[in-house]
Amino acid sequence: MSSDKLLVVEDLFVSYGSIEAVKGISFSVNRGELVTILGANGAGKTTTMRTISGLIKAKSGSIRYKNIELTSMPAHKIVALGISQAPEGRRVFGTLTVEENLFLGAYTKEKLNKKVLSWIYELFPRLKERKNQLAGTLSGGEQQMLAIGRALMSEPELLLLDEPSLGLAPVLVKTIFDTIKQIKEEGTTILLVEQNAKAALKLADRGYVLEVGKIVMEGTSKELISSPKIQEAYLGKKKAG
């Protein structure tokens, strides 16, 4: 598996002014895998995701996707290479319609792929029902579906999902995670950042644990689930969907 690395992050440092948010992390994602990054609030998970997408510049280190260096690339070119992201907090365009949001997801494509659109409407029938509605009028769960659907519109090889379960009712968390599983099974490689460790490890092949900007543990999901430290810190008292 190690020969088929899609994304390789090496010794990545990211800081906001003088505050270091990510302190030399290294990890990789293989083609076809679902990898999760776990960690508490402020561990540097979102910073890592934003840096991969090119929204923040790394201070040092490297991010290579298919052996192409991403750290000096503007965000819009990274999308064109095949990495898209459903960001934390969903960030849908509230005053645009659901369908306009989806069309923007395919911005880097010359022509809209109708098959992808109908696939997304199959994954999230709710979006089809509401396609002419303004995205800002959707419920939180529907907005999350839209954020994921929008990210899929660019037909990414690597999908970045940042806290897709944040603020959702347990029943919706299950729907979202079931869909993520389905997306993975249909061939998209996924990097999933989550606070909901139990739900994330259930889906993931491998995982990394991030604490205050450093990776403190890594392994297969099985290894992580059975680790006493993880059980205590991330699984014990947390409610999972």
Binding site: L55, H76, P87, F93, F103, R150
Partner: peptide, 22 residues
């Protein structure tokens, strides 16, 4: 498409970048 991108930038520039909008 460019006009829709313009409206998207007016709402949220970072989200627009994540769509691949320059």
């Amino acid at each position: 498409k460019l006009g829709t991108a313009m409206r998207a930038c007016a709402i949220d520039q970072d989200a627009a970048r994540l769509m691949g909008i320059d």
